[in-house]
Amino acid sequence: MDNDRIKGVGKEIKGKVKETYGDATNDTSTELGGKADQAVGKVQRKYGEAKDDAREAIDNADDKK
């Protein structure tokens, strides 16, 4: 599993907690910051997934040789 996937999930979780806290305290800035953190985490996670898929495709191609 790619390190970017792990870091991305962590950022998504952190962002969700931050968003929930901002919502509970009526702090719009914190809530929006949490949503932004989630978006960044999602992109990073998807990037890690793409790297894993590429590695797997290369490994499968090497196995077929």
Rank of each mutant, 00 (worst) to 15 (best):
residue 2 D to C: 09
residue 4 D to F: 10
residue 4 D to H: 12
residue 4 D to Y: 09
residue 5 R to I: 08
residue 5 R to K: 13
residue 6 I to V: 14
residue 7 K to A: 14
residue 8 G to A: 07
residue 9 V to A: 04
residue 11 K to M: 10
residue 11 K to W: 02
residue 11 K to E: 02
residue 13 I to R: 12
residue 14 K to Q: 14
residue 14 K to G: 07
residue 15 G to K: 00
residue 17 V to E: 08
residue 17 V to P: 04
residue 17 V to G: 09
residue 18 K to C: 00
residue 19 E to G: 03
residue 20 T to A: 13
residue 20 T to I: 12
residue 21 Y to K: 01
residue 21 Y to I: 10
residue 24 A to N: 07
residue 24 A to K: 08
residue 24 A to P: 04
residue 25 T to Q: 05
residue 25 T to V: 13
residue 28 T to S: 15
residue 28 T to P: 01
residue 29 S to L: 14
residue 29 S to W: 15
residue 30 T to N: 00
residue 30 T to E: 02
residue 30 T to D: 01
residue 30 T to K: 01
residue 30 T to V: 07
residue 31 E to F: 04
residue 31 E to T: 02
residue 31 E to C: 14
residue 31 E to I: 00
residue 32 L to S: 11
residue 32 L to P: 02
residue 32 L to C: 06
residue 33 G to D: 09
residue 33 G to N: 09
residue 33 G to P: 00
residue 34 G to T: 01
residue 34 G to F: 00
residue 35 K to F: 00
residue 35 K to L: 03
residue 35 K to C: 04
residue 37 D to E: 15
residue 38 Q to G: 07
residue 40 V to M: 06
residue 40 V to D: 07
residue 41 G to M: 02
residue 41 G to S: 08
residue 41 G to E: 01
residue 43 V to W: 00
residue 45 R to G: 01
residue 45 R to I: 01
residue 47 Y to I: 03
residue 47 Y to N: 09
residue 49 E to R: 12
residue 49 E to H: 06
residue 52 D to W: 02
residue 52 D to I: 06
residue 54 A to Y: 05
residue 54 A to R: 09
residue 54 A to I: 15
residue 55 R to A: 07
residue 55 R to S: 13
residue 55 R to Y: 06
residue 56 E to F: 04
residue 56 E to C: 05
residue 56 E to N: 11
residue 57 A to H: 05
residue 57 A to L: 06
residue 57 A to D: 07
residue 58 I to D: 08
residue 59 D to Y: 12
residue 61 A to W: 06
residue 61 A to F: 11
residue 63 D to V: 08
residue 64 K to L: 13
residue 64 K to W: 09
residue 65 K to W: 04
residue 65 K to D: 11
residue 65 K to A: 15
